[in-house]
Amino acid sequence: MTLNPLLPFLMAGDPSLEALPGLLAEARALGLDAVEVGLPHSDPIADGPVLQAAAHRAIGRGATPRRVLESLAGLTDSPDLILFTYVNPLLQLGLDPLLRLLEPTPVRSLLVVDLPFGEEPGFEAELRAAGYPMVPLLAPTTTSDRAKALLGQRPDPGPGAPFAQRFAYVVARLGVTGAGQGTDLDPVVARVRDLQGITARPLAVGFGLSDPASLRAVRALGATPVIGSALVADLTTGRPIKACLEARLV
């Protein structure tokens, strides 16, 4: 598998739901395998100020979970999507309506920030069986034994599956999402190397990455950098997504 060079994060509904298909098509035209799409939530406890503000703008413009998924239905020129969300909106939709909404979309996996494995076992198993595995998250506080367990609980479907369903998400630093000021990459570099000794599946590294040098450093490890808050902030200035992404692909 060739390295997916960048995993962008977009907040659905910010700047607007109408704009989302176009943004996704641009990402695909740049050859990106996958994009994380955030479902705006009222209480995003793992997000920093930029994504909090984006979520609240999106909710203010009516980007409900149902509308977000409906806006993704039938897209043909989109990368694979990873739905980034908190668990409550999914539970309130309910399993069957959620599966019906997901079915016509390019969503291939779910990244549920506040759902440790085992808390909603039936729900998670049904989603996996229907083709929507949960992305395992590995934090700076995750011990090596725990990482092994997490990677086993949410296993790699294997080389035949797309990146969106295979990768594990390495949280680069303690805290919440947000463009970090001078994030020290040494600790995460060491962690990625350790994790690569445990697993052969692709790794994405996110939280606090923004400048091209950090992104290159992650790529040099053979991992995919995630660009979230910095991209969302850029897009709100009206800068075209093509330019935003190209600047981070060098």
Binding site: V113, D114, P116, E119, A139, T141, T142
Partner: peptide, 12 residues
């Protein structure tokens, strides 16, 4: 109840 926490907080 339960423990619906982000992974960063699980070990703590």
């Amino acid at each position: 109840g339960g423990c619906y926490a982000p992974e960063t907080l699980m070990q703590p």
